[in-house]
Design a protein around this nucleic acid. Structure first.
Lengths: 145, 145
DNA sequence: GCTTGACTTCAACCATGGTTGAAGTTCTAA
DNA sequence: TTAGAACTTCAACCATGGTTGAAGTCAAGC
């Protein structure tokens, strides 16, 4: 019983996650060997809190729970799985970098729409200051959006 | 019947999506007023192909189909919805930028693991070239991963 | 001793984003 | 004219990632 141990409520509050999610993670194998106290309550050790930080990083980069579980199993198996973990992380990093690139490309397309809409709204403002009190049909520049 | 019109099969091939997904998108309201030919088959006009490009950009940046549908409805409603669309796109852009930032932060954590694993593997290689044919218990440096 | 709050289990339910299968229709080319 | 490809509809199914609710246990404070 380390002083750093946490109840599920404390762990949840610390991580900003609902307790139900932490139970779900345990059920899914993301929290191996999670101890219980005399009353059968989950005890979140420092190890598990650190692990949850790692899980958070993997989740924020869209790794599916199944892969995270595989990773955790390798951690439990010991250091001889280091090459497997390294390979997994290298691949994952590349996937994430590719995904970020794709998002930037998509953002470029979105930015074009933003520019078009801003121009259009500016055009209206211009019009209404030229000829106050006139609801005008605007310049026809719509394509597919 | 423009020469640029496409059958669902052609559209799917062009976009790299299964036909079933295009039917699903129509059902979900992402492809408004999609015409049919005499035989009742879907006709993908240039407008719809362009719209699908926009949809692709929004999807790649994780906008849910429900929001995309709202956007498409505004497009159909006409130019007076421009401020709504502009607002939606500005918010969305910010969300995406935040998400990318979060992913970069998570990647930093992942990079630390990669470095640790690479060091460990290098350590082993060092060891095995110093003392060939010796399976060694490595330096104890495991924390939570 | 009794309520309150925090915990437990387990199964059922939910939203999202499709995918699949069955059964029927229509166009195309030999 | 007939086989096959390509299309249609619709409902059912699937994986993912949780969320919720019912029913029960347990320790602490009044």
């Amino acid at each position: 019983m380390h002083n750093t141990d946490r109840s599920i409520g404390e762990a949840a509050a610390h991580l900003g996650l609902p307790e139900s999610t932490l139970r779900y993670y345990e059920k899914k194998g993301l929290l191996p060997h999670l101890p219980r106290d005399e009353g059968g309550r989950r005890v979140f050790t420092e190890f598990h809190m650190t692990l949850l930080q790692v899980i958070s990083n993997l989740k924020r980069t869209h790794m599916p729970l199944g892969s995270i579980r595989q990773y955790v199993e390798w951690v439990v198996e010991g250091e001889h799985t280091t090459p497997l973990r390294l390979d997994m992380m290298l691949r994952h990093r590349q996937n994430v970098l590719d995904e970020i690139t794709a998002m930037h490309e998509a953002l470029d397309g979105i930015q074009i729409k933003i520019n078009r809409y801003e121009d259009r709204v500016r055009g209206w403002q211009q019009l209404s200051s030229d000829k106050p009190d006139q609801a005008a049909e605007s310049s026809r520049t719509d394509s597919a959006s």
